[in-house]
Design a protein around this nucleic acid. Structure first.
Lengths: 197, 197
DNA sequence: TACGAAACGGATGCTGCCTCCGTATGCATC
DNA sequence: GATGCATACGGAGGCAGCATCCGTTTCGTA
């Protein structure tokens, strides 16, 4: 990731196909969720199924590649959030950002959480996931130092809470008001008692 | 549901097959989750796929039938819980019971929540689900009357929260300690501030 | 015992997954 | 510009699961 340009540049058709696949996959994930037919993705990208599987051996690999852009956006957002003075507010906004990330496609929380648990280093979603957890933990510690979050809470806990909320959103069972109350539930759960609302 | 024995008694093979299917389905749901192969269930029950689909036209119908027993257990538990004096503790225990119900099989929260949302009366999971929500609301109101739960919280909210927790449990990503903290998060979220822990 | 209604069950068509290998293509070399 | 080869393509094919349909069997009754 940090070292660019190892080996020679890929062939032109490889780059073209990869780009077409990513674009088609993004469209399909948006429209039909992460469980969409990969054959359909390949067809829409104008390549055969073999080509898709050569580029992205598993659904998770394709998903990770498609999420790459959004992960970068999240990092950018992280820097903007960090500039906020208030640690509690920063944590709040970060958790919202994580929720949004999880809600990018329908059904995304499942593979993401599975990757967070996985010890198999083969899963390409594990890396971004662990990164998210580590970052959440930083925000939590900062907010704890500022006395705004209970000491017992961990970044992992809030990461899980955010995924749960995102999952709930994805089911479509929750309206805006209930969602707000659910978030409020979690927030008042991790906040240090006695802190002003 | 309330009126028994409409029409004549079903044929012997019908009863036998239905029972065999339910037993096989329960085993498979336990072992492989709600997404298990229905063909495999039929085979293990010793019937053809046609027979399975005649008895249970959809996966949800089969699931609802298998859950019947557990729903009844939940009702029984409800009565035991109601005997508790403390409304807050009763709510807490009820929510745990709902969580357990949701955790009966891997992947159960999805179809259950989908059924709760559904307006289509065709879904056989809608009825037990709505029942769960209504009951949760009763507990919430009682606890609110006792001043133990914030007035803004609804039974539906806590029903959703319980499903989220159950979903999280089902992913296997959460250890016992994190689970306890997640529950604590929700609890301290709905509790009336100022109430003793 | 015989009959008719009801249920059975497997063959069937369909979709999606993933792999394998004969063929096509891009790129470096001459 | 032509040539050769490594690399990538892509679709045929095997497999699994879903859901249906209909010829055959079974049950209960008369």
């Amino acid at each position: 990731m940090s070292v660019e340009g190892q080996g020679r540049r890929p062939r032109a058709d490889v780059r073209r196909n990869r780009a077409a696949l990513l674009e088609a996959a993004q469209r399909h994930f948006l429209k039909y969720g992460v469980g969409t037919s990969l054959e359909a993705v390949a067809k829409e990208a104008g390549v055969g199924p073999g080509t898709l599987y050569r580029h992205f051996p598993t659904r998770e690999a394709l998903l990770a590649a498609v999420l790459q852009t959004r992960s970068e956006e999240l990092v950018a957002r992280r820097e903007a959030i960090a500039r906020l003075g208030d640690a509690g507010e920063a944590l709040r906004q970060w958790l919202r950002a994580v929720e949004e990330y999880f809600s990018a496609f329908n059904g995304l929380p499942e593979p993401l959480i599975a990757a967070a648990r996985a010890q198999e280093p083969g899963n390409p979603l594990t890396l971004p996931c662990d990164h998210l957890i580590a970052t959440t933990d930083e925000y939590v510690r900062a907010a704890q130092r500022a006395g705004q979050v209970r000491p017992s809470v961990t970044g992992f806990d809030l990461f899980l809470a955010a995924s749960s909320v995102a999952w709930m959103m994805g089911t479509g069972a929750i309206d805006a008001e209930s969602l707000g109350r659910l978030r409020g539930l979690v927030e008042s759960g991790y906040r240090q008692p006695g802190d002003a609302e």
